[in-house]
Computed example of a mutant assay.
Amino acid sequence: MTTGFSFQLLKSCCTTQARVGVFTTPHGLVETPRFMPVGTLANVKTLTPDQLRATGAQMVLANTYHLHLQPGEEIVAGAGGLHRFMAWDGPILTDSGGFQVFSLSEMRQISEDGVTFRSPRDGQMIHLTPERSIAIQNALGADVIMAFDECPPYPATRESVANATDRTYRWLKRCITAHQRDDQALFGIVQGGVYSDLRQEAAEQLVALDLPGYAIGGVSVGEPAELIEKIVQATAPVLPPEKPRYLMGVGTYRELVQAIAAGVDLFDCVIPTRLARHGNALVQGARWNLRNSRFRDDFTPLDDTCSCYACGHFSRAYLSHLLRAQELLGYTLLSIHNITELIRFTQAIRQAVLNDRFDADFGHWLRS
């Protein structure tokens, strides 16, 4: 039984499954639909907590696998948990570490008990089980924690995907048993690869367990964009409307609109900070490389419709200069802008649903 959590559905779209809600956690509210920045090692790269708050971020992510390797969950727990450790007083979600472990395909072995892998940090052999993943996340102290799952690659045979999906369900039940804190909401993860029937069956199994929330996992692992859309459309409607729905690891404009139209509430992706480190800015649906010569003497704001610190104080020419000179401030300013942009985008979708204008304002993302 979890305490301090609720999801209130405020409005649904009349032409799609898009919806507006409020997810309440012990550390505050999350207005959905909402993009969540990723802070892998208890920090959204290059940003202070104050800078992150100024982007409009309400909930952030941290990574169980990476925090287990460095500094270790004991250190985080000793600091009073993730919220105190990283000086973030808003909601936090930790993933299970499953995706990171399974991406180490040449360094790990999977069994029914769990996964044994060689740490890329120091070569140490580590055995991660559903119980161990939950214990680490209990120690980290995030508001929302994720069940340990097996994420099948793409492409993969139907048989191997079915086996991974079945194991994910068995591991979920072990996670539920191992979970020790009622101030943390444990979300289950729907797997099933690109097979709609496996996805629907897995979603139905998870719904029967009456969890506080549900995630759609195993997307953005190499499959074409049209298959991601198909997966989400097949899965989201099966999940209970009174619980939050979270699509893991997507963050392009089109993916966000498509998923929101299918009824998804929460999203995360490393795209805004990763693009910033490569000199790319997200501007009103487009992606700009600020190292291009056309920006060298452009003294206008990056985006005069954006209220972020970068757009309010600096020109495109200055940002271009910082990036060409590899000055760290350039990466910080672009990260501030890119995160603000994706949060603004989901906020605008939220308002459009409230105003019965989702199709009019964002339908072109679905049709183009």
Rank of each mutant, 00 (worst) to 15 (best):
Q109H: 11
K45G: 00
A142K: 08
G97C: 07
V144Q: 00
L67D: 02
F102A: 02
Q70R: 15
I136P: 09
I136N: 06
N63G: 03
F102H: 15
Q58D: 06
Y154W: 14
D122T: 12
G98S: 04
V101A: 13
L104I: 08
L140T: 10
A139P: 07
L140W: 07
S96E: 08
R118H: 04
I92D: 00
P153K: 13
S119C: 00
L82K: 11
L82P: 02
E131V: 11
E74T: 14
T129C: 02
L47H: 07
V101D: 02
S96L: 12
A135V: 07
T129R: 12
P130E: 11
M86K: 11
V76R: 12
P130Q: 08
E112L: 13
V101Y: 02
S96Q: 08
I75V: 15
N63S: 01
T94M: 04
M59H: 05
Y65R: 05
S105Y: 15
E131L: 07
G97M: 07
P120N: 01
S133M: 04
T40H: 07
S96H: 10
A79R: 13
G80L: 10
T48W: 10
M125A: 12
A79N: 09
E150S: 01
T129L: 03
T129N: 05
L41K: 15
M59I: 15
R108Q: 14
A54M: 15
T48C: 05
L140P: 00
S105V: 12
D50W: 07
T48Q: 12
P91H: 05
R53Y: 10
P120I: 03
A57T: 02
R121Q: 14
A139D: 11
V60A: 07
I75G: 01
L93W: 11
A57F: 02
A54H: 15
E106M: 09
L82H: 06
L47Q: 04
T94S: 02
G123I: 14
E106S: 15
F85I: 07
P153F: 01
G141K: 14
D50A: 15
R132E: 09
Q70K: 15
I134H: 03
H127S: 07
T48G: 06
H68V: 04
P120F: 09
V144E: 00
M125V: 01
D113N: 05
I145P: 02
S119H: 14
Q100G: 11
L52D: 00
D89A: 09
L140G: 04
V144N: 01
S96C: 04
T48R: 10
G39D: 00
F148V: 06
I110F: 09
E106C: 06
H68W: 14
Q100N: 08
D89H: 15
D89G: 08
Q100E: 08
H66N: 05
Q100Y: 12
Q58W: 04
G72P: 05
